[in-house]
Computed example of a mutant assay.
Amino acid sequence: MRDAPTIEPLGDCALRVGLGSEPDAATVARVQAAARTLREAPPAGLREVVPAYTTLTLHYRPEAVAGEPDDLQPPWQRLAAQVQALLRRPRRRAAAAAREVVVPVCYGGEHGPDLAAVAAHCGLSEDEVVRRHLASPHQVAMLGFAPGFPFITGLDSALRTARRATPRTRIPPGSVAIAREQTCIYPLETPGGWNLIGRTPLRLFDPAANPPSRLRPGDRLRFEPIDAARFAALWAQERT
């Protein structure tokens, strides 16, 4: 039996719900299930549910969970009790299947300048690094760091690689990178220290779109190799 969630206040209008200590597949799945539960039956005042690796952050309106004038219990404790009760309920239906999103990637060369270094570090050929990356069971655990930036679990352990000793100050949008046991995709041009192994032409963040982020926590990703010509064609198509 899993431990009960831990709940603590974050300021006066947010709660942090802890659902595990390690960002393994079971904990990530538990976080996603809890997020679905709270979105499907939100307590009064709940404004937003933000999943991370092992936690949920719940943003809420304190006035919506205020008690009687002589009740000195703070709003966060009332909301915490409601959240605990909701998460203890057995789910009446199976969880919705995760979306699968196909992400085309041009590996190596100018689009993946660190592929050779990753291959040398792992004692593999560049083709084997790509093969193992394609075969890994990738899943988006959370969005963070920059708008639409996905942290992706499931990387083959043979590809575990430390971050670069010297981060880059500018990384092109769409860059697919690995570090430690994770993959990420840079949606915007930002600094970063992950190892760049390829690049996708997909536009992962568009502030004019609804929703603006193409990916969402819980998505399963299937990377698909493409060549430079296909990359250029898809890049132009995504931005017309």
Rank of each mutant, 00 (worst) to 15 (best):
L196T: 02
L215C: 03
A135N: 09
L79P: 09
H111E: 11
A233E: 15
P9K: 10
D12C: 11
A135I: 04
G193C: 00
D71F: 06
H111P: 01
V28W: 05
E100D: 06
W194C: 03
Q73K: 12
A85C: 06
T55R: 06
M1P: 11
S21W: 13
V102K: 11
P113W: 11
H133I: 00
A95N: 10
L87F: 10
D12Q: 15
V118M: 06
G20C: 07
L202G: 01
A141C: 09
F151C: 04
E189Q: 14
G11I: 06
V31N: 04
D219T: 01
D127H: 08
G192C: 00
P201S: 02
P212D: 05
R132M: 10
R239N: 14
A64G: 07
A162T: 11
P225C: 08
T240H: 14
P201R: 02
V65F: 14
R78N: 10
A119T: 10
R91V: 14
L115C: 06
N195R: 15
A135T: 05
C106W: 10
R78Y: 07
V83N: 06
I185N: 00
L79Y: 02
A4R: 14
V129L: 01
R168L: 14
E63V: 12
A14F: 05
L38D: 03
D156M: 05
E48G: 01
L79E: 04
V130C: 12
A141N: 08
D71W: 02
S157M: 02
P42M: 04
G20S: 08
A165D: 13
V140P: 06
P167K: 10
L115D: 03
Q73V: 15
L215W: 00
V101H: 01
R220F: 00
R78C: 05
A4S: 14
R132I: 02
R61P: 00
I152C: 07
L188E: 04
P75H: 05
V130R: 12
